[in-house]
Design a binder for these strands. Structure first.
Length: 173
DNA sequence: AAGAAGATTCGCT
DNA sequence: GCGAATCTTCTTA
């Protein structure tokens, strides 16, 4: 699957290579304690953006994954640049290509994703939308989710095995 | 009203 | 490898 970002200065396209699932009833999910002003987008019908701000510095991008009224989504943790690399580089302080989109905070920064995109429909054309895969995904690995303390043992992180744009220690790739 | 925790990143040792 | 940075949100430790 690819993600397309339409910016003032051009279009950036990214191939999604790493995600984590946050399911209904999952204590680690932001939706676990019910709907609030911050997480309401997680309760939208699948295919809408949920963007939140974390650690005082970073935005993280998620796609809602359940039916309307049920909270759940997928965190996009990493991507492989496909087009518009110069645009991403400019927003990432000229980081090297491998670091442009590796990790949820970097991913959002490279694509200029912030709370103004929270709640938008990703299944239709607009500033940000999901497109068909530019290349089929390869072998999918799974692991524990990164950076959480609750429900830490569940294997809900998915990534393309061997892909250098995946975050985390090399052994996970 | 105050405080702690948080789906992270970067720079320094 | 470790710790600081930095601020919003939810909980009441």
């Amino acid at each position: 699957m690819s993600l397309v970002r339409e910016l003032d200065d051009g279009v950036a396209i990214v191939r999604i290579v790493e995600t984590e699932a946050y399911l209904p009833g999952d204590a680690a999910a932001h939706s676990f304690r019910g709907e609030t002003a911050r997480n309401r987008s997680l309760f939208l019908h699948r295919g809408h953006a949920y963007v939140y701000f974390i650690y005082g510095n970073h935005y993280c991008f998620n796609v809602s994954a359940e039916r309307a009224g049920i909270g759940g989504g997928v965190l996009v943790r990493a991507g492989e640049p496909v087009a518009g690399i110069a645009l991403m580089r400019a927003r990432r302080n000229d980081a090297r290509d491998r670091d442009l989109l590796r990790g949820p905070g970097r991913f959002a920064q490279a694509l200029a994703i912030d709370r103004s995109l929270d709640g938008i429909d990703l299944c239709k054309a607009g500033p940000l939308w999901l497109g068909a895969a530019t290349r089929p995904i390869g072998d999918v690995g799974e692991s524990r989710r990164i950076g959480i303390t609750k429900e830490a043992d569940r294997l809900l992180r998915f990534f393309e095995r061997g892909n250098p744009f995946v975050s985390g220690p090399a052994r996970w790739a």
